[in-house]
Design a protein around this nucleic acid. Sequence first.
DNA 1: TTGTTATATGATAATTTGTTCATATGTACA
DNA 2: TGTACATATGAACAAATTATCATATAACAA
Lengths: 124, 124
Amino acid sequence: MLEKNYYNVGEDTCSINVIHEKAINKAKKEMLNDETYMELAETFKLFGNPTRLKIMSLLSVEDLCVCDMSEILDMSQSAVSHQLRTLRSKNLVKYVKEGKQARYSLADRHVTQLLQIGIEHVLE
Amino acid sequence: MLEKNYYNVGEDTCSINVIHEKAINKAKKEMLNDETYMELAETFKLFGNPTRLKIMSLLSVEDLCVCDMSEILDMSQSAVSHQLRTLRSKNLVKYVKEGKQARYSLADRHVTQLLQIGIEHVLE
DNA sequence: TTGTTATATGATAATTTGTTCATATGTACA
DNA sequence: TGTACATATGAACAAATTATCATATAACAA
C-alpha cells in the first residue's frame, strides 16, 4: 500500500503530493488569504522587539506618558516616540492628549492576551 | 532617560518623574527582567513573517512533511526548511522522522492560541 | 554498489529594521 | 509675547533578516 502511494506519474509534479494529498487538501482549505497573513505578520512583527515589548508590558500595568516610559526604559524620548508610532500603526496602543503630554494605553484586550501567552511560552 | 534640557533647578531629577512618580514605580515593579523580554522578542519575531505564519497555520490543521508545505506554499524546499529550522529553534514546531520524511507539527497549545488571538486582532 | 528522494544547511545579496541626530510641532505659563 | 516643556518626525546608517543557490546528509530502492 505504501508502495502504491509512492508511484510517480512522471509529470512535473512532486511525487510527494500523491502521498499526503488528503492532508494537503485539508490544510490548504483552511488557509486564510495572503493579505491576512501579511497583515498578521506586520502585527506580530511589532511584538518582536524588546523595546516595544517593554512598552506594552509597562502599559499593561499603567497608562503612561512618553517621558515616563523614556525614563523607565532609559531610552531617548525620540526612540520611544518612534516605537509608539509603530505600535499605533497596528492598533496596539492608543493615547489621549493631556495638555503637553500624551497618555498612552494598550489598545485592546488582545495585546494583553498575546503578551501573557507569549510569556507563558518562554517561561515554560 | 535624562536629557539635559529636562533638568529642574539644579536637581538631578527629571521634572516629569515628579509628575507620574507613582505610576512609574508601579509599572517598573511589574517589569520582567531584560533577558525575558529578549527571549520573548525572539519568539514573537518568528510570528512576524508571512511564510512562517502560513507554516504554523497549516500545521494547526494537519501534521505535514516539508515537501507538502513546500507544495502548498509554492516555495522552494530550501526556504521552507530554513523557516522550519528557525521555528524549531524557539520551540514553536517539532517533528518526527518517518523514513526519508520529517513529519512536522506545532510544538504546543501556545502556538495555536497566539495564532488565534492574532487573527482575531487583525480581522476585528 | 549506484541512483533517487527528502531534508538540512552554508553563503550570499537584497531588503528591512531600530536607533540616533536634528529639527518641527504644539501646549502652557510667565 | 517669548520661553520651556512634551512629543513627533525625517534622514541616515549599522545591524538583522529572508529567499536563493549550491551543496551536504541521510534513507531507501534497484
